[in-house]
Design a protein around this nucleic acid. Structure first.
Lengths: 168, 168
DNA sequence: TCGTGTGAATCCTTTCACAGCC
DNA sequence: GGCTGTGAAAGGATTCACACGA
């Protein structure tokens, strides 16, 4: 990225630098954090503690971005009750009550594709405002609920596209 | 997306439709697969069989996109030798020889951040052409090696940005 | 009539150029 | 001298409009 590009991008949110000096880094980080809403705390819950959910539960960068892992849910009785990264795994039966009691704003879907929409519907009904979806399906939510889907096939297709001619 | 948008996008790779009729879906899918290089087979290896690597090894969509899981590597002796999704876990000591013998073109990095660059270097030296990186660090590779990084903090920041005003 | 392919017009983003400031 | 902020110019992408074909 060019310097002008970065200046223009920042300019669309305000003027954060000092002419002739530059940007005060710590201040700029704060400003960007505010722009992204990372200055506040978000309570998240992971639904589905298979390998993927487990990996996400151990993701270290959550905290530094202001995300607090507030609950884990699974339907497998063998997993319910376990402690992962200091958080206990609850039964999905307790989804709605826990989302309310622990003030959870974001739900992370890490269940198999076939169950993803049903989980999303329950999350929305329970009052979640955002969904981070890892299941490889398109999920429908009301307009006032934000959804971000991590689609792994995009990354693989990108690799494949660039390798296509390069590799014999 | 608008219809014109899609027509223009496709037009930059050729003319795939019939005027007055539309697109023959099966044919179009084939054409797009060719454009993306998904019509050929890619052999991939996952390095790091923690929860994340394990989850990736069980990712069902690999095959349908033409990706064949050809090897798994871990440094933990307790995991080496196990069979996951029909693929045996090898010691990372065997990385170089296996990449050659199994004709692996793409390496998937699922190791902790601190080891990611070292693994990437070994993959590149062993002749891998593409790297799919899940470690939360920026990885340096030569220009002729393609790299795609899955940065989870982007998705979370996107959610946070949109929820910022909406949520009290 | 409906849908693709495509030049032309429009819109938006990036780059250039430079004033202002330390 | 070096760096930000910002109008102006240039470059790209999207939308419009329509020719063409089934």
């Amino acid at each position: 990225m060019t310097p002008e590009q970065i200046r223009k991008d920042l300019a669309s949110f305000g003027a954060f630098g000092k002419k002739g000096v530059g940007y005060h880094v710590a201040e700029l980080v704060n400003n960007i954090s505010q722009i992204l809403g990372l200055d506040r705390k978000w309570n998240i819950a992971i639904i589905g503690v298979g390998h993927l959910g487990w990996a996400l539960a151990n993701y270290r960068n959550f905290a530094s971005l202001g995300f607090h892992l507030a609950a884990l849910f699974d339907q497998n009785p063998a997993i319910v009750g376990q402690l992962i990264n200091g958080v206990d795994v609850l039964s999905v039966a307790d989804l709605e009550t826990t989302i309310t009691s622990r003030n959870i704003q974001i739900g992370v879907i890490a269940v198999p594709a076939g169950e993803a929409q049903a989980v999303a519907d329950r999350l929305v009904a329970a009052g979640v405002h955002g969904i981070w979806n890892f299941a490889p399906v398109r999920i429908r939510v009301p307009d006032d609920v934000q959804i971000v889907s991590e689609d792994l096939s995009v990354g693989l297709s990108t690799l494949s596209y660039h390798l296509r001619r390069q590799v014999p």
